[in-house]
């Protein structure tokens, strides 16, 4: 494991990700909502973002299967779960609702913090609060009562 190399890699990967978002149109909430507005004035162009990203990413996974370990770490940390459970589906429903309401998902919202726009900061602050709320609700001894929708861990 090489910490300095990992940090530089992560910085470069984050920068590439942010550049890609800016170029792709994903930073524009009105366009994201246009992409989701399939029954109205549908703008399909953002499907090309996902198509481009998934294609390139799939090549990376194909290569990773032939490697014993990544370059700067002792092993790959890839989720291995296959179970389709209620938290997965319910979480995706809630996320999709927030995505449709705002036109923001986490990557573009965090990247857009650099614009200094107040609405972006409000969204990201609320998003961090939502993440903290989930952490509290699923903590074993959290909030004094058993969580209703926490996955068994």
């Amino acid at each position: 494991m090489r910490p300095a190399a990992q940090i530089l890699t992560a910085l470069a990967a984050g920068l590439t990700f942010g550049l890609g978002l800016a170029l792709s149109g994903m930073l524009d909430p009105a366009r994201v909502r246009g992409f989701l507005d399939v029954t109205g004035a549908w703008d399909p162009s953002l499907a090309f973002v996902l198509a481009g990203a998934v294609s390139v990413s799939a090549l990376g996974y194909a290569v990773s299967r032939r490697l014993r370990a990544p370059a700067f770490e002792s092993r790959f940390a890839i989720p291995s779960g296959r179970r389709i459970d209620r938290p997965l589906v319910l979480g995706a429903v809630l996320f999709g609702a927030g995505w449709g309401l705002s036109g923001f998902c986490p990557g573009p919202a965090v990247a857009a913090l650099s614009t200094g726009l107040v609405p972006v900061a409000v969204f990201v602050a609320a998003m961090l609060a939502g993440m903290a709320l989930h952490r509290l609700a699923t903590r074993p001894s959290g909030l004094g009562s058993a969580p209703t929708s926490a996955p068994a861990r």
Binding site: R33, V89, L90, H134
Partner: peptide, 27 residues
Amino acid sequence: PEMRIVASLPVLALAGLLVGFGTRLGS
């Protein structure tokens, strides 16, 4: 990059909560 934010601040706050909680619950 072009950014047109159409939602009001209260709607953005609600949406942020849903996105934050939902993405953790849904992994």
